[in-house]
Design a protein around this nucleic acid. Structure first.
Lengths: 255, 255
DNA sequence: AAGTGGTCTAGACCACTAT
DNA sequence: TAGTGGTCTAGACCACTTT
């Protein structure tokens, strides 16, 4: 690879066909692949990379942002750039508790409760749960880590009439669906998802040590019990490079 | 916090508490909401906005890129910025043909065939179809538009032994699954998805009048017939602001 | 031909993290 | 306190789209 020609006299280097940003991207890809930069490893500082690749901050950052969008690297707010670990596979219909899902893939799970209160249901939440606006619902907010990296910010909204006193339980260790079954005799018999790609809002970004506005995958989910009643509504925001959603089922068309 | 006095005498405007980029974002949001800028409407040119908001090109572009990531606006390559129409709802298990899905939401569908050939299966494709690497497969590439906007780039890979001569049919008007049934007596009885957020590669970007590297939602799909045999493998790249994936089913856990 | 977005240069200051 | 990423300024040239 040619030395990063210093400012003047770029002369006749062979590889100067591709524009700088793209060359930069490939150079970075080489760095990710060739070296022993394992998953989660930190990249050199931007100023170091700037110097070693001979570019501007802005151009470098564009290349980094591109790789971030591709899901190959990620950043922690004001802390630097890191190599993305392989995506966690999230089987939507397996409905495994988070810990089991993570551990079955030989990875380590942690959960932190950020909030566990009740509050009146907003219009949106009430609509999804089929209750009156203003009815109290339990509001549980958690951050979940994989191998020490915070990747998921969830807000759960539970019908209080279904789960009286559920906030008293240990919500960092136990799975909600397991509590539903063991303490309230409620089983989830149908789930309804909506998925779309967005960005992290400030609260989520905060919990994930990310920059607000970073790329995210939203997974919202409504759980129904054996009587077809909506019992809770979850709003999940994942760091977009951290998961691959999977799904296998029979199609439901009448044809 | 001292007002971020922008160079020359902007005087004493009240809203100078928030940093410029965020103020800009809100100003743009106002523009999207307040005015009669309907879905698909074009935004003013960057230089115009630069002037009217009193910022730099780079700062402006950052705000625009942010709104793009949020799915509120999108860009067409070198043509400008546009207001995103509402997301198309894509029910993964309904398995409706594209045209029906779109038209049932009161929108207009168009399909263009970009390629219809056969070629030896790559290792990845062979693995997904359960065939030997190098076995020929049909390769169909299509671009699909909603209300005149290209939003989906798909590559289909079909087992040639299942669908001899399928390339002779009209692939712009007819749905593949309908052809499977009517001409080959093959029904899709199971589907398997993998979803993740990525970026548009050059070919997809080209077909979607987008910039390569723009945000995208990948949906890959394997269809199985009534005998459990993988019959085709689709790789879909959507403009990420164009869809919301939905899904409703019974969970599959044994518990 | 004019105007647009895409890309790039060469700096700067600030808030925050790490030491 | 030194170094980091986050943000911003003030320009420039090019390829492409549109008129």
């Amino acid at each position: 690879m040619p030395p990063p020609s210093p400012t003047s006299a770029p002369s006749h280097h062979p590889s100067s066909l591709t524009p700088p940003a793209n060359r930069l991207r490939h150079a970075l890809l080489d760095m990710l692949a060739d070296k022993a930069v394992g998953h989660g490893a930190r990249l050199p500082s931007e100023r170091q990379m700037m110097a070693s690749f001979g570019t501007t901050r802005i151009t470098l950052r564009e290349a980094l942002t591109q790789l971030e969008a591709e899901g190959r690297i990620y950043r922690e707010n004001r802390r630097g750039w890191f190599v993305s670990p392989p995506r966690l596979r999230y089987d939507l219909l397996a409905c495994l508790p988070f810990r089991e899902m993570v551990e079955s893939q030989q990875r380590r799970a942690e959960t932190y409760v950020l909030e566990a209160t009740h509050r009146p249901a907003s219009a949106r939440i009430a609509a999804r749960l089929g209750i009156m606006e203003g009815t109290p619902v339990y509001h549980i907010v958690r951050a979940r880590h994989v191998d020490g990296r915070p990747v998921l910010y969830v807000e759960h909204h539970l019908r209080t009439d279904c789960f009286p006193g559920i906030l008293e339980h240990d919500l960092e260790t136990r799975s909600l669906t397991e509590l539903y079954r063991s303490h309230y005799s409620i089983r989830v018999s149908r789930v309804s998802f909506e998925l779309c790609s967005t960005v992290l809002d400030e609260r989520a970004a905060d919990a994930l040590r990310a920059a607000s506005g970073g790329p995210a995958q939203r997974v919202t989910r409504i759980n129904f019990d054996q009587n077809g009643r909506a019992i809770d509504y979850d709003d999940e925001l994942w760091r977009h490079d951290a998961i691959a959603l999977t799904l296998s089922a029979a199609p439901q068309n009448g044809a």
